[in-house]
Amino acid sequence: MKSKDATSFYARVADWVAGAWAVFQKDLRLELRSRYALSTLLLFVLAVTLVVLFGIGDAPLTSEIETTLLWVVVLFAAALGLGRAFVYEEEQGTVLLLRLHTRPSMVYAGKLLFNVLLIGVLTGVTAGAFWLMLGLEVGAPGLLGAVLALGALGLAGATTLLGALIARASAGGGALLTVLLFPLLTPLLVSVVSASQKALAGVAFGAAREELLTLVGFAGVTITASVLLFDYVWEG
């Protein structure tokens, strides 16, 4: 009896993972077919970086301004691109199919994974563009990598649920996501900018402990809250 329960539990977990993975793969395949989101966002990032360059010329920048610009660009790119994951389903009329075949938590997990991947690539490219074009000097590349990864995770965690909300409130359009998202992301932005400054200055991991812990906490809280709340957005 007990072993039977255990197998059914493992079967359910395997089922859940397979479902979430299928949603992720579907999104990835659709994206690779059109490359719409990725190319739009990459062009957006490059265009904004060029505008920043035009504005600044060859005036030297402090690391505060560099990191703030970097994250503001990433934030706006995320607000533009990550809302699409759910709006797309509404536009294509595939919401009902997904609801029929998968449980809400699978959809959330799949979309979250896809958004983490997308925003991760985006963050990396933005940092690369800044490094190349603005001559960013990175003292601690490992720390910067960790900060970028954690920042992308927190960003995706907050944006995925709000993207689903926006898809329900389609009347609001693009500006609504920005209005909803930015005040909630203030804590993320503050810690990530301060940690990036430390990474540029080249301090050890321990010196940025507070910021890193805040980022881990923020990602954990937003993802947990999303998992709890997603059912109410998705159903009905």
Partner: peptide, 14 residues
């Protein structure tokens, strides 16, 4: 009611 309640609770978490 549903959508705004979810947003409010998400804000409570942050």
């Amino acid at each position: 009611g549903r959508v705004s309640a979810v947003y409010l609770l998400f804000a409570v978490a942050v």
